[in-house]
């Protein structure tokens, strides 16, 4: 379970103070796909960076499976896989080399690691590209490789920030299939997106975020029932 208690993140730029997250309270249950939905600049990426220990909150507290994101960073990092929309693959490596490196970094023994690589590669349909240099991969295969890296250590929590950005319909569908499979395997997936159709089809629970504040959160069915509208219309109403 992930708990955000009164979380605020402030950025200071010259004379300006920007509240990227403003007093956020959230409880994300395990074994589900949790959608964080909001427009550009709403605070989605900052919230995900705070959960993944990349940033520290200015105020408030975040617990990931009972561990504090400030005091127990290593323990949390071992339990999460993070993929941000602005991450790219380093050049001059093959997906296999990168998976071996990140697997070893996460203390996976060689035997377990090679088994895990085979599993993921098959799952993501990457077998024929596993030894191709990353700069020669298509956008879809690059994204699949990034996903593979983020889950190589079999984390319990996976955080995906706009994972279908820039992908064609087929590549996006295969990424979403993988996300659903993760949930079915008992993982917690936090999915940030501004694509309402994807959120409606994929997520169990949703939080709408705008100007650093959570404006609404509930499970998808309850939200639709409460507002008697599609997610897209709810979004347009409350954001």
């Amino acid at each position: 379970m992930i708990l955000l208690k009164d979380v605020t993140k402030v950025f200071k730029q010259k004379n300006k103070t920007i509240y990227a997250c403003n007093d956020i309270n959230l409880a994300i249950e395990s074994n589900q796909i949790f959608g964080l939905i909001g427009p550009n600049g709403a605070g989605k990426t900052t919230t995900l960076r705070l959960i993944s220990t990349l940033m520290a909150p200015t105020k408030g507290k975040i617990d990931v499976n009972g561990h504090d994101t400030i005091k127990e960073q290593d323990t949390i990092r071992a339990q999460i896989g993070f993929l941000s929309s602005d991450m790219t693959l380093p050049s001059n490596y093959t997906p296999r080399e990168l998976l071996l490196f990140f697997g070893r970094l996460n203390n996976l023994k060689n035997e377990i690691l090679s088994k895990r690589i085979s599993e993921i590669v098959e799952q993501l349909n990457l077998s024929q590209y596993i030894d191709v240099l990353t700069q020669k991969l298509s956008t879809g295969n690059k994204q699949k490789t990034l996903i593979a890296i983020s889950i190589i250590h079999n984390p319990e929590i996976v955080i995906f920030d706009e994972p279908t950005n820039g992908l064609d319909l087929f590549a996006a569908q295969s990424v979403l299939k993988i996300i659903k499979k993760m949930r079915d395997d008992g993982k917690t997936v936090i999915l940030s997106t501004h694509n309402l159709a994807i959120a409606e089809r994929t997520c169990n629970n949703i939080a709408f975020i705008n100007k650093g504040k959570i404006v609404e959160t509930n499970d998808v069915q309850s939200l639709k029932k409460k507002y008697d509208k599609s997610l897209e219309d709810i979004y347009l109403d409350i954001i």
């Binding site: 220990t53 071992a78 993070f82 941000s84 991450m87 380093p90 990140f102 996460n106 203390n107």
Partner: peptide
Amino acid sequence: GEKERNTLQLLLVNRI
């Protein structure tokens, strides 16, 4: 260079 290409985050989010 890694910051510029956004490849550094891959490392930072890992257990290193």
